[in-house]
């Protein structure tokens, strides 16, 4: 399972930063860790960006298949 999880990525990022901050890593490995950290940050900030279709509702089409359609509250409510 290679699914992206925000929380675990942040955790990995924290560990990596701590390692770098300790200063024990050789330069070569530091550079690798740094590059990886930048990737993690890019992934996470990508996820933080606003989604396109934020609100959808499941609708069943005539042939029985399911579909997500944009959702809006009916104006008559409230």
């Amino acid at each position: 399972m290679n699914e992206f999880s925000y929380e675990s990525t942040i955790q990995k990022l924290e560990e990596l930063v701590k390692k770098l901050e300790s200063g024990d890593l050789p330069l070569e490995e530091s550079l690798q860790a740094y590059e990886k950290g930048k990737q993690f940050i890019a992934l996470c900030s990508e996820k933080l960006k606003e989604a396109q279709e934020k609100l959808q509702v499941v609708v069943q089409k005539e042939n029985g298949s399911l579909e997500a359609a944009p959702f809006q509250f009916e104006k008559t409510q409230d």
């Binding site: 925000y6 942040i10 990022l13 770098l20 901050e21 200063g23 550079l31 740094y34 940050i41 933080l48």
Partner: peptide, 26 residues
């Protein structure tokens, strides 16, 4: 969301700073 953004920014800063330090040391 703003908590997450802040957390991420802090981590990015720490990452950069530690790398800079590493390079500077070297």
């Amino acid at each position: 969301q703003k908590d997450l953004q802040q957390q991420l920014m802090q981590l990015a800063q720490r990452l950069n700073r530690s790398m800079e330090r590493k390079i500077q040391e070297k």
